[in-house]
Amino acid sequence: MIQGVPLQHILLLTTLLFFIGVYGFITRKNLFTMLMSVELMLNAVAINFVVFNAYLFPENLQGHFFTIFIVSIAAAEAAVAIAIIVNVYRNIRTVNAERINEMKH
């Protein structure tokens, strides 16, 4: 826990970070930027876990453990997603989400 920084400030930061991620995911057209937005959301969640653990429940470490798993799974997710994006680029020659529209309602 950081001296002089109350819990509320950090929670405000993580909530902002999370919704910036949501906004980016919805508005951006580049697949890589969309992936980065998701990473932003995951990082917000990770900070949330650490902060709750350190400020409110310092007697056990569940929040810290969860954060480690979030980080590692985010890496796995990015690996698969980037592999698929590369494959998309090979087939369609673009990473623009608006032009990946062969299937529509």
């Binding site: 697949l31 994006i85 494959n87 998309v88 087939n91 369609i92 062969e102």
Partner: peptide, 14 residues
């Protein structure tokens, strides 16, 4: 090598 399949993959993972 099928366009639709990779399109499905990217939509699914994101």
């Amino acid at each position: 090598y099928r366009t639709k399949s990779s399109e499905a993959g990217i939509k699914m993972i994101l």
